[in-house]
Every structure is written in structure tokens, then in C-alpha cells.
Design a protein around this nucleic acid. Structure first.
Lengths: 200, 200, 200, 200
DNA sequence: TATGAATGAGGCTTCATTCAT
DNA sequence: AATGAATGAAGCCTCATTCAT
């Protein structure tokens, strides 16, 4: 008696809807930062707040979904570096730049990323883990080749990069501040030879 | 015979009140972070919201006042280092640690500090300038002695330290994360000899 | 078999709620004037402030809704006059009295009505337009019959009536002040024969 | 022991102060309307709020003082009309225009003027009384010469003029709205000969 | 008398989230 | 599954007026 075809259009529809919300949220984040109101995103997406929350039970979940949607780009970067860069030090540098861009995409993004690092259960945690894992790989290669200090872990580099992105903010038109900080992160401020931790 | 101080009455009381608000705000920041509501601070201080706003027309102004109240501590640190530390590299390290502690005092403090660096008119700007100026002095000494790279400025170091404090957050009980990051800020992740910026 | 009305669910409830808020606001305006606080109305209506603002994003919108709810009364007046009054002069007089009552309903109502006349985008503008249009119709009939000066427009009469209502205020128990002013509006203070605008 | 000369500089000083406040309030009203905050006026005047309130215990009192300060201008107008205008109808018209200008000086001024008409004890009442008295005189002359209806009193004309000024508001750049309304107040909207109150 | 600090109620508005339909 | 109405706590801030000094 009910229309059977209409009763389960959802599977596909829902996914379409989900993808649409993500795309719209991406725009919203880009325009207004990740702190944009959930209502505003629902409105932009043309769905009710309830639908938004059905798909993404919290703002963090939405941020995570957007970031996951962007992950393939980062993966492509990774592959490109791995395929084209023989120098493991330069490879690590290029990777960190790519990660920076990933983190810098929206105003306010560094905050949830930092939280995700602490809260094991955060929806953003998997993405962070992936990025850290890749960072670990690039870092290990660099360390193996004597290009990077031994005591450092991918997570430290990730957090340092995040800190740099936070410090630079979204507002500086030119990226000079960020570049300067990233350079300091790489070389440190101290002249080598007398540091407290002169590497491995 | 005439009261020479009569030209500025009530001030004593108001200043007492002001000082009280600052003390209470300090507590509030420590308990709940700098994002604590202004109303909550007014309530804690036992004054009306209007009184709070008369003294501190914005949250930033209140943060600035609290930080200024803490400045003498930092000054004492500075003097202690200058008086007791002959090694300019160690002096700079100790100073940066003191600055870290200064910045780390309240949850969320790094955010207004970062803003103050951009907005010239921020009430926090003077405090930032002072700290940067001192950093410049310690850094210059270290550079003169060949302990620090020449291209770096106090402002960079200040911002780097701020970024580290932000990244570490207030929550980590032990300061290991912060120490790790600070160490990375000092030595960099790259092994020397092949960096893009081989120092002065 | 399918629920055709299903395409617009919940609406019924929301409209009930909306109507309730309007009724309560009407009371509130009557008791305390249109300047009554939005919070007070929300409280009276037993809804959260947010609900109030969802339905009526501004005080003007709420006033407009209340006035629209009262419009049918005015319409009924109009029909009664049109149906029962053959003398176009008396018809216009009766209509202006009805409009006066419409405008006099709440303390402070003339102010938003005056604003709406200036700000095209005001939520009250449509109601004003309607009333002015009807006034134009009654006025045209009176002018056609030689009962009203030709140079006058409905809008002028509307504004004049509004001014009279404002001047009389809500407070005077008897309407003598208003009647006097309305009479002056009709006949003017000058004795005819020497006026600057000797009619059509 | 106290300096006797300094102990009573007040008489003159206070009056100077009072005059200064009035002048400043006049500016403030002109710039921001009569609803300007009392604090703002005190600040502009360079006095404490307490001083302001000592001289003028309420906003109305301050408005009244400013209007009283402007009264001589109106008096001069009156004298000029009385001296130069032989036609009592034109004299009344000119006087009402002068009164309009008096009432139109500041945004929001009509409101306290209206209140003063109702509240016997209002500080503005004397000024109103004076203006009404003069209006009565001009009106009586016009009535005596058959230029104005007999049933009207100065108070009605005053209130009508006030209503017109209120309706026109401060915002209309050209005074066309006010002129139109004032004209309607003079001639009425009805064509003579059939009015309900065809004057004496 | 002048000062200006203090009051503190009260206004407006936003928003994450829940829930009835 | 989708909708969007409802919640209601909070936040921020202003201002007329009083009062201690």
C-alpha cells in the first residue's frame, strides 16, 4: 500500500545529502571560519538543523568530515612527494608545508585540531593520526639519512606545525610570518654546537 | 596646611576597587580561563557590571590589567637572570621559559596575546611590546656571543614561544609537551649543516 | 491514501504558537505600551526568548504582526462605512475616526507607525500602505463630491491623523483632546475666504 | 586657617558652570537628540555626573533649561511680529512658524514637550505656558479680526503645532512634509460650507 | 560644592542542541 | 529520515541616578 520505491530512496539520498552538507560546510568554514554557527550551515545547505545533527552530531564531527573530504588532496601531495622527491630532507619539508596548508584552510581550524590531539575520542582524531603517521614516515626517512634529529617524533612535528599555523593566523595576507616561524621550527634559534640537545 | 592631595579625591577608593577587581579577575581567569564571562567576574568581585565596565571597557582591557599586574614578577625574573646569569645563551633560555610561564598562566590567554600583536591599539599591546623589547635585549646578547642566529628578531622568538604555549595548552599536567616544543624551537628539527639558513 | 498535507508538517503547531504570542503581545502592548520589553513578552507567552525572535526578529515585526491581526477589525469598519454611509464626507470622517482608534490602541504606537512611513522596508509598511490606500479611496470620493480639498492626499490625512493621535496620547481618559484636534484637522483654524490655499 | 577667598568662589562659578552646561547640552541635543545620555553631556561639559544632577535633577529639567535659554530668541520673534505685522492672521501664522522652529530644534524634543503639557509639575511647564499665552494673544487678535475660528484656544493651536512637528520629525531634509501638515492645520481638509463646526 | 565611582536592573540577541511531528 | 520549531541559558552592554569622599 505504501509506495515501496519511495520508502527507501534514502540510502542514496542520504549520502547525497551528507556530501552536499560537507561541501556547503567547507564553503561556510572558508567564508566565516570554523566557528560559523551550525544554523547558518544548515540554512546554506537547505536542510533543517535536525538533519545536520543527524549526520554530524557535533561541530567537531562536521569539521572532521570536511577534513576527511580534503584528505585525498593531502594524500595526492604525499604521493607526489614520495614519487618525485629523492632527498628525504626536502621531502619532509615539502610534506610539512602541505600539512600547513591543510591546517591553514579555515580560520579557527587549529583549535579543534589541537583538541583532537588530546581527546582520544574526537572525530578529528583519525585524520590527525593519519597525518601524524605519514609525518612519522617522512621523518623516519630523514632521520635515517641524517637529516633530522633522532629524538623527534612525528607527533612533535605535527604539533609544532600546528602551532606555527595558529600563530600565523589566517589574516596575514602574505605568508611571511608563517614562513619565518616554520624556518625557525626547522633550524631553531640557537646556533648549533652548543645546544643542550645536540641531536643523536 | 592645605591638603595638597585634595586635588584628587576618591581615587584611593576607586583604585582599591580596581585592584580588587583585577585580583578577582586573576582568580577567575585561573579557574575558568580568560573566556570567563564578564558578568561572572563582576559577580565574583561583588560589583555591578557597570563598575566592571567603567574600569575595563572590554575584556581585553581587563586581561591587559591582569597581565600588567603580573608584570613585576616577570621584571623580577629578568633582573634575576641579568644579575645571575653570565652565559647569554642560558640567559635567553631562562628568559623564554619565564615568558612561557607568563603566557601560560590562564587557559585561552594565548589568543588575546596573539591578537594584541596584530592590533596596534590593543590594551595588551604595551605589555607585549615590553616583553618583546626585553626579549630583543637577551637575544641581542646571545647573538653577539654567537649563541643565536643573526636573522632572528625578538618578535619572532616571542611569537614562537606564544605558539608553543598555545600548542601545549593549559591542560597537560606535566609540562613535557611544552618542553619538547620549546626545545624544538631552540634547536630545530633539522640537523645542521644542510639547512637553508645556515646561520649568520 | 497518501497524506497530501504531509508536505507541510508541524506548521500547525508553530502557527498556533505564533498566534499565541501575538495575542499575548497584544495584551502586553495594551498594558505596558509598545515599548514593553521583548523578554517580558516572551515570559508572558511562556516561550523562550529564542522562540519569540524566531517568529519576530524585531520589535517592529511583532508590532506589525499585532497590527495585522487587528486589521480585520478595521476592514470590517471600512465595509460597514462603505455599505452604510452614503455621504462621502461623513464616510471619510468615520473612516478617520476608525483609523484613529486603530492607531490609539497602545501607548507609544504612533512612534513605530511614523517610522514605518519613512522606512520602506519596515514590517509595518504594508499595513500602513493598506490604510493609506483606503484613506485615499474615501478621500477621493469626498473630493469628487466637493467635500474635501483637492490638493490633499490620503497620506497627508493619514499622517495628520497619526499626529493627532500622538498628541492626544493614550492617557487622557476622555477623548476630548483628540476630538478637538481632529476637528481642527478637519476645519483648520483659519476662517475660510482668506486662506493661502483656497481649495481646489 | 582656610583660605576665605577660595571658600566662596562658588556663587559666580556655579552659575558660570550652569550656563556652560546648558550651552553644552544644547549642542548635545542638536547633535544626538534630547535622548542623549546624561553622562555624555556631563563628559562634554567636563563636569561630573553629580554636578550635572545638582544643577538639573532630571533630564526634563535640563531640557527645560535649554529651552529657557532659547526663549529670548522666541521673544525677539514675537516682538518682531508684533511690531512689524499689522495683519493679525499673518501674525498668527508667523508666530506658529516660529513656535514650530522652537519645537523642531532637537530630535525627540516633541516628546518631553507633550509630557509637560500633561504634568503640571514638569520643569518644562512654565515655558509651555509662556508660549501658549503668547499664542493665545496672537490668536485672540486673529479671532477679533475674523481671521480665526472662535472656538479654538491657544492651547489647541500649540498642541496641533507640536503634533505637526512631531509628525514631520527631524529627518526630512526639506520641510515639505511639515509645511503641508501645517497648511492642513490651518485650512483643514474639509471644504467649508458643510463642516460640522463652521466656526463662530 | 564638585566629583566621578558605583549601582544593578534590564535590554537585546545568539546558538548549540533537542524533540515533536 | 527530515524538518524546523523550541529551548533558555548566557553573553554583552547601557544608563539614569545615587552617594561617599
Amino acid at each position: 500500500m505504501t509506495t515501496p520505491a519511495a520508502s527507501r530512496p534514502t540510502r542514496t539520498d542520504a549520502q547525497r545529502n551528507r556530501a552536499h552538507i560537507i561541501a556547503v560546510a567547507e564553503e561556510g568554514f572558508a567564508d566565516l571560519g570554523v566557528e560559523v554557527s551550525m544554523d547558518a550551515i544548515a540554512k546554506r545547505a537547505g536542510v533543517g538543523a535536525g538533519t545536520l545533527y543527524r549526520h554530524f552530531p557535533s561541530r567537531e564531527a562536521l569539521v572532521a568530515a570536511v577534513m576527511e573530504a580534503r584528505s585525498p588532496d593531502l594524500e595526492r601531495e604525499r604521493v607526489a612527494i614520495e614519487d618525485g622527491e629523492s632527498d628525504s630532507r626536502v621531502a619532509l619539508e615539502r610534506w610539512l608545508e602541505a600539512v600547513s596548508a591543510f591546517m591553514r584552510a579555515y580560520d579557527g581550524l587549529p583549535d579543534p585540531l589541537r583538541s583532537a590531539l588530546r581527546e582520544q575520542g574526537s572525530p578529528l582524531a583519525p585524520t590527525c593520526r593519519d597525518v601524524i603517521a605519514t609525518t612519522d614516515r617522512f621523518l623516519a626517512a630523514a632521520q635515517r639519512d641524517g637529516h633530522a634529529r633522532k629524538g623527534i617524533r612525528g607527533r612533535d612535528l605535527y604539533l609544532g606545525t600546528l602551532a606555527v599555523v595558529w600563530a600565523a593566523g589566517t589574516e596575514s595576507a602574505d605568508g611571511s610570518v608563517e614562513q619565518g616561524l616554520r624556518e625557525m621550527l626547522r633550524s631553531g634559534w640557537a646556533l648549533s654546537g652548543e645546544g643542550a640537545a645536540p641531536a643523536s
